[in-house]
């Protein structure tokens, strides 16, 4: 995996204007190119604030945030940073700007001053990537939640970004919509080397990440592979989080003496381990 950092935070602190509470305290982290990173934390832990620092929607009060070496607090870098770091938000209804799907996908490139013929080509390609080409001329409000989020992703792809940040983009979706969105971004990561940052409430989603960051009360309290993070059950509990159900099962089986691998954290992996242990 390439080790070049695309997003880097050094000693970042943040506080909302007019609020006494600090939203983020002394956070240092780096996200590498081509990596899938999950950020988990309870409601109000600061994870949404954190991801808004990634594309200069918010600027740090202390410390620095850099994207591809560009400081987010320098006004001159603003558009370039936002082009590179695309963001999908939670509510599918509040991020599509225009009524018709393809016109919405063209919105970003239009802002960047891309020539019309190229916008057309980018829009068609982006809608193809998210498998929404059949809906190009449809009204966006009639789509399902998962489809709306895929259109939002296409709108970012048309700007040719390096990073996709999903700010709880699956929270309001049904299981099928969640699956559609997740498989779309993971495919983009596999096939295009897209860096993906998922902020999520669903621990199961974090299992698919290369690394997991855990936020608790405005602090970064843990960082590691899913296996490392979900092994810290006590720390997770303290951060008001839960391990995925299959991780709990794995631990219960281990405690009872069943020889299952520590790496088994999904249904299929665990089924393999259990059937081996029971038939051995």
């Amino acid at each position: 995996m390439p080790s070049e950092a695309i997003i880097k935070l050094v000693n970042v602190g943040f506080q909302y204007a007019g609020s006494e509470k600090t939203a983020l305290k002394n956070i240092s982290l780096s996200i590498k190119k081509g990596e899938v990173v999950a950020v988990v934390g309870h409601n109000g832990s600061g994870k949404s604030t954190l991801c808004k620092l990634f594309n200069a929607l918010l600027l740090p009060a202390e410390g620095t945030v850099t994207v591809d070496g560009m400081d987010t607090s320098a006004e001159a870098n603003l558009l370039e940073i936002r082009r590179r770091v695309g963001m999908v938000f939670q509510n599918p209804d509040n991020q599509l700007v225009t009524t018709i799907v393809e016109e919405d996908v063209g919105f970003g490139p239009e802002n960047l001053g891309v020539p019309p013929a190229e916008i057309r080509a980018r829009v068609d390609a982006a809608l193809g990537e998210v498998e929404m080409r059949d809906y190009a001329e449809k009204a966006s409000h009639a789509l399902s939640g998962g489809q709306k989020q895929r259109v939002a992703i296409a709108g970012l792809l048309a700007m040719q970004p390096e990073v996709l940040v999903l700010d709880e983009a699956t929270a309001m979706l049904d299981p099928r919509g969640r699956e559609e969105v997740l498989s779309t971004v993971l495919k983009l990561n596999r096939e295009r080397g897209m860096t993906v940052v998922m902020i999520t409430q669903f621990m199961e989603e974090a299992l698919g990440a290369d690394r997991v960051f855990v936020l608790h009360d405005s602090r970064l309290v843990m960082e590691g592979t899913p296996r490392e993070v979900f092994n810290e059950r006590a720390l997770l509990e303290e951060s008001r989080l839960d391990a995925p159900a299959f991780v709990k099962l794995r631990d219960d089986l281990l405690a009872a003496g069943l020889p299952v691998s520590q790496d088994a954290m999904t249904c299929d992996a665990l089924a393999d381990e259990i059937s081996r242990a029971l038939t051995a």
Partner: peptide
């Protein structure tokens, strides 16, 4: 939220904007 989404997609007013359909 919409304003934030628009900003994220580099919206900065009509200056220098092109259109997909001329």
């Amino acid at each position: 939220e919409l304003a934030m989404a628009m900003e994220s997609r580099c919206y900065h007013g009509g200056e220098g904007r092109t259109r997909m359909r001329e």
